[in-house]
């Protein structure tokens, strides 16, 4: 979670200090805001811990502030021409799958499932943008590294929880593996370059 938090802070600090969101995919950031919104609908109904509640609020705030920076405050620096990933290619399959494969057919549960599936592919517009322009600022690569590391660390956490609590969540685990795989090529480049 701290790796995830660090990633989001890095991105915000980068945008704020440079007063620019060049090289950042607004579409990926909108998807992340949508991920947190649909996942944290239980913010007021399902209390886990103070840590859990505080982190949810911080994640939501970070996501929305980032979107605000890109599409409002620093919109003149937004590289709209290169942020061309077609969101419907992600949203249509993800919506379909969240209705087909979920734990229970209730609105909040389907939306939670949607958020898990969507998160696994939400970075693709950003990765597409980088491959299209062929460049990324150093700070952007740090952002991506910690964002990918967070899900890779969750894989270890899930193995630990299965061993110690016999707890496992197939939807999270399969999506988490898929999500981590999308970062592998990037991890390789990050470490070698």
């Amino acid at each position: 979670d701290l790796s995830h938090l660090l990633a989001m802070f890095l991105l915000l600090v980068k945008i704020w200090r440079s007063k620019s969101c060049a090289g950042i995919s607004g579409k990926s950031q909108i998807l992340f805001a949508l991920v947190f919104t649909t996942r944290y609908l239980d913010l007021f109904s399902n209390f886990i811990s103070i840590y859990n509640t505080v982190m949810k609020v911080v994640f939501l705030l970070c996501a929305y502030v980032t979107v605000y920076m890109i599409y409002w405050k620093f919109r003149k620096t937004f590289d709209n021409e290169n942020d061309t990933f077609r969101l419907e290619f992600l949203l249509v399959p993800v919506i379909g799958l969240s209705f087909l494969v979920n734990y229970s057919y209730t609105p909040t549960e389907v939306l939670w499932t949607f958020s898990i599936y969507l998160e696994s592919v939400a970075i693709l517009p950003q990765l597409f943008m980088i491959s299209k322009t062929g460049e990324a600022e150093t700070i952007t690569t740090h952002y991506l590294f910690f964002l990918g590391l967070y899900r890779a660390l969750y894989l270890a956490n899930w193995i630990w929880r299965y061993q110690t609590e016999n707890f496992y969540d197939q939807i999270s685990v399969v999506s988490g593996v898929v999500q981590t795989i999308f970062y592998c090529d990037f991890f390789y480049l990050y470490v070698t370059k």
Binding site: S104, T106, Y154, F167
Partner: peptide
């Protein structure tokens, strides 16, 4: 475990 309720991960 009932996985349909109480997701405790972020």
């Amino acid at each position: 475990a009932d996985l349909s309720t109480g997701h405790d991960e972020l």
